[in-house]
Design a binder for these strands. Structure first.
Lengths: 141, 141
DNA sequence: TTTATTACTATCAATTCGATAGTAATACTT
DNA sequence: AAGTATTACTATCGAATTGATAGTAATAAA
């Protein structure tokens, strides 16, 4: 992992890691849809190319936003899981979702997301809790 | 402006507009540092190339996140100002900043931002108010 | 034991990035 | 009024990245 941060600005530095069109979508799939495998990420509506997905997973792993493990009963599938620091991106993902929901309808037909209607901090709390409780049920080795 | 949104997902759609390494930095300069001109954006620490800056300003204008105007007494300088919908990205920018501040110190030397220490919603409120009050003092024609 | 699936890597054309130079219009200086 | 400087770009072009597709090795399922 080469250190090519553009500056010491925390915003610029964060964008140096997740500031692209795909990283946050992979994190969305993990956090909101509990996806865990290469196959599942590949099957998303947005159709990420395998070479790009592979590169993103490596990058996110190198910055310890995700881990790569295997389940005891399956030596083929890699299981990607979010670390605490990635789970802490929940608020950003939710805000991005809410902003798009509110402001982009004049440019694109935006899906109506049910869970987006209630209170922001409750949504974020629920999402984090759900992800963490899902983690309990994944038997990794 | 070609409609190439990847899906109806509000997160994906938002990233289709501001999901790159530069757009949010320009918005940061406008919102947090009250920068308004091509020259000022060019002079940022991260050194955006003029061709990229020009493209980003056009894109952000086309999605009405910013406006381009001139001041009465200066026919040379273009004054770029944020619209309400871009000002509403404040919370995302602040969260990104706080996340980087908290989690990236092991990978990069992150600047200490004074204003980041107090309460999140107060910070966001203050930033929005400051920007809007600055707008009052810009005499555009 | 054959077939299917998974998680990739390889390839390569197409697009985008980014450094630098150049230009037209306006403003400033003398 | 003339020359210089500044501003906001555009143009260029090599480098880097993206993205579509094909291929492969390991494991799992039939």
């Amino acid at each position: 992992m080469k250190n090519n941060f553009r500056s010491g600005c925390p915003i610029a530095s964060t964008l140096d890691i997740i500031g692209d069109k795909w990283s946050l979508l992979v994190l969305r799939d993990m956090l909101l849809h509990h996806k865990m495998t290469f196959k599942e990420f590949s099957s998303s509506e947005e159709q990420i190319a395998p070479s790009i997905l592979s590169a993103r997973l490596k990058l996110l792993t190198s910055y310890r936003l995700i881990t790569r493990q295997k389940q005891e009963n399956n030596k083929k599938e890699n299981i990607y899981l979010l670390t605490e620091k990635a789970i802490d991106l929940s608020s950003i993902l939710i805000d991005i979702s809410m902003w798009g929901d509110k402001y982009l309808r004049e440019f694109n037909q935006i899906d109506n997301i049910d869970g987006l209607k209630s209170d922001r901090s409750l949504i974020i709390k629920t999402i984090k809790e759900r992800y963490k409780s899902m983690l309990q049920n994944v038997a990794i080795c």
